[in-house]
Amino acid sequence: MSWLSAVPDPEIPVLTITDLGIVRDVTIGEKVTVDLSPTYSGCPATEVIEQSVIDALQENGVDDVVIRRVLSPAWTTDWISAEGRNKLREYGIAPPEHGASKRELLQGSHGIACPRCDSTNTQVVSEFGSTACKASYKCSDCLEPFEYFKCI
């Protein structure tokens, strides 16, 4: 597990895959089986992450690695660890704040705190951002734009 916690997310390298909560299980037998949950169906990082896990384990002398994609239960932003959320904030991305409820997905998020000045006086600039998992916001107090990691 500590070897895996050194594997960065290719889209947001400040986070590791264990911060993201996508490593679901590791089984050590004749082979090492790692269960990973994809984040979005079409996330282009899925294959890169799988290859990085294989590389990380091989560097540590584990040659026989099997990756399993586990779809259920589906990954949710609720699984991002507390440490992961702090790292995101320090990196300038507002972490997902509330639970990924139906209401949240249907109505959107309000009062997202600015990762720079903590003000909740912020507004949505775009529901979509540089990757599928982020939205673009602007802080009305410090006037800085920032990205928000959407709840899903």
């Binding site: 979005y40 169906s41 779809l71 259920s72 239960p73 589906a74 139906k102 899903i152």
Partner: peptide
């Protein structure tokens, strides 16, 4: 399992 994953995405699109 696929439906659980996909419905979250579609809900966001639909909004």
């Amino acid at each position: 399992e696929i439906a659980v994953r996909a419905q979250k995405e579609i809900r966001y699109h639909l909004r």
